[in-house]
């Protein structure tokens, strides 16, 4: 009975926590972008503008939720919910601290990969349902980009899996007690980082919504809370990828014991979230063909090589 209660508490906690963080990122991102661009950022609503999040939320909730007459209505409504669902599902396998995990699956990593693949649907469906050429272009770009980078993302993680010998997330964290995987799996880390940015189609890889070319790409026709779902979905994605990097390469909750494990986890996670924001502040968007050739011609061989070498080393050690 008690266990079930705890489990429910964890589920509710993770759900609220992640969504709150994602919403909070609206403020964090705007503020940090400003800081890196020598501006003030939001500073009108509340002290240091921290209620900007609330203002934005209120605004987005009360905006007219317009469904254009020419769209495929059902798909148009379903599309934004998929990204929210698939990413929130992924959070169920994330161990935030020992015991704070919704479902400690033994194939946790595969579950994460599977769920993140579903994210491609949201873009394709949104692009298609909008019945608009820019949306369609955005959707097509998104599909190609996400499906391609999923390949390297999966492969880059295989090094970690080979070293640990398990897909279980808790096992992976525990395997890093001696040395964080970022050191032996440095190449895997870089590839995963880049692929993670591409998977969440964050800047500089935001080609599906490239506003200078495609207005807003796949979500051109969206407004109100449906747009808000994409928006929050994107921040959830960042949070998720940051969590995964923390777990897979930076030892998860592991850290000196003067702070509780969950805090360590959050510190590491926020560091990567900030890194994502820095990427946005600093880098320019590559051309679409550059993105694809970079993936297939550089990251793929590199990832394969990484798997090959890790496998060889593990094999020779055994």
């Amino acid at each position: 009975m008690n266990e079930i209660l705890v489990q429910i508490l964890i589920i509710v906690g993770v759900l609220l926590g992640t969504v709150t963080i994602a919403a909070g990122l609206i403020y964090v991102e705007r503020k940090m972008l400003a800081v890196w661009q020598q501006r003030s950022g939001p500073n009108r609503v509340g002290p240091f503008g921290i209620f900007q999040v609330l203002a934005d939320m209120v605004k987005i909730f009360f905006k007219e939720d317009w469904i254009p007459p020419f769209v495929d209505k059902k798909v148009f409504i379903i599309a934004p919910t998929i990204i929210m669902l698939s990413i929130l599902m992924s959070f169920s396998i994330v161990p935030f601290a020992p015991g704070i995990v919704i479902a400690d699956l033994n194939i946790g990593l595969l579950f994460f990969l599977a769920m993140s693949s579903l994210g491609a649907y949201t873009i394709v469906l949104a692009g298609w349902a909008s019945n608009n050429k820019y949306s369609l272009l955005g959707g097509m770009r998104g599909a190609a980009q996400m499906i391609s980078y999923e390949v390297f993302m999966g492969l880059s993680l295989m090094g970690v899996v080979i070293q640990v010998g398990s897909f279980n997330m808790t096992d992976i964290v525990n395997a890093q007690k001696g040395l964080w995987f970022v050191v032996p799996q440095f190449v895997g880390f870089i590839i995963f980082l880049i692929a993670g940015v591409a998977e969440t189609h964050r800047l500089p890889f935001d080609l599906p919504e490239a506003e200078s070319e495609l207005i807003a790409g796949f979500h051109s026709e969206y407004s109100g809370m449906k747009f808000g779902m994409f928006f929050v979905g994107e921040y959830l994605g960042i949070t998720l990828v940051s969590c995964m990097i923390t777990i897979l390469f930076f030892g998860g909750w592991l850290g000196p014991s003067f702070l509780p494990p969950i805090v360590w986890f959050l510190i590491k996670m926020f560091a990567f979230i900030l890194f994502f924001v820095l990427l946005r502040a600093a880098l320019a968007r590559p051309r679409y063909d550059q993105l694809m050739s970079f993936g297939w011609k550089l990251l793929l061989p590199l990832a394969l090589l990484n798997v090959l070498i890790t496998g060889a080393v593990v094999l020779s050690n055994a």
Binding site: V35, W36, Q38, R39, L278, A282, L283
Partner: peptide, 22 residues
Amino acid sequence: SNVRTLWMVFLKMFKKKVTIQY
């Protein structure tokens, strides 16, 4: 050069803000 850019933008954090509070 991308890494260098990242670093340079990161350093902007410690510069004075140029915003005029209109």
